[in-house]
Design a protein around this nucleic acid. Structure first.
Lengths: 129, 129
DNA sequence: CTGCTTGCAAAACATTTGCAATCCC
DNA sequence: GGGATTGCAAATGTTTTGCAAGCAG
């Protein structure tokens, strides 16, 4: 099950690396097709699964939105979902000290934080409206 | 669009209120059918949507798991997903001070935190293994 | 070469919706 | 009684899978 290095996977990884925001499966397909025309959606899903198992890919699931995927290894960060435009942004920084939140006897191994609100663009548009 | 009070919705709300953990759509169907046999899955989804709009219901989406639903209004809390048994637990408390994490110009309106690790039961089982 | 990976299309799954009958107020 | 709500079943949309052919190692 050693992951083989194929043109398709390179294209998918390149698309992920180039994306500023986490991508949905279909966005990822579109982006990767620029490098690898004829790429099938099924291949994207298979790559997502394999790369996810490898830990190269990270899944971001938000309520009411399809799962998004991003390249792992860019350091610890979280996400901000704009309720105005629906885009998801990177958020650097982390409150830390989450271990105290876990119930007694629970072993904390990781965490995910999602912020909701208006992005700079939507907040501005709202003011002027 | 005033929500009407029907037997089905009572059953669904009752099932939600009785549940210790957030429920998936199907778990919710099963639980509510105990109070209301013949309840259709479509009705559950419609109730989820309507009650969600009303703010009575809260959606919890986790990567790799179907969305779960819980009753809102139990105070601010977060969730802990056990990687061992897959269950989702309530977590009281909140690090607060998340506004500083939002990028400049972004308006923070809410947040969601998910902790991952081993619950008390699974952590114990692991030690003895 | 050998076997994992791909593309295509069909299958599997979860969620949504149309419509006539029903129930709530 | 009027109109929202329900149940059923079919439609929708997304993710997965089977299979023959292609490419990596």
């Amino acid at each position: 099950m050693a992951v083989r290095h194929t043109r398709q996977r390179s294209a998918i990884l390149a698309a992920l690396a180039a994306a500023a925001h986490p991508l949905t499966a279909e966005e990822l397909l579109g982006a990767a097709q620029a490098h690898m025309p004829g790429l099938a959606l099924a291949t994207v899903y298979r790559a997502i699964r394999d790369l996810g198992d490898e830990g190269v890919l990270h899944v971001v699931a938000l309520p009411g939105a399809p799962p998004r995927y991003e390249r792992a290894g860019r350091g610890h960060h979280h996400h901000f979902e704009c309720r105005g435009c629906g885009k998801v942004f990177h958020v650097d920084g982390c409150p830390g000290d989450l271990a105290r939140l876990a119930p007694k006897g629970f072993a904390l191994e990781g965490h995910e934080i999602v912020l909701y609100g208006q992005c700079a663009g939507c907040a501005g548009a709202r003011k002027s409206a």
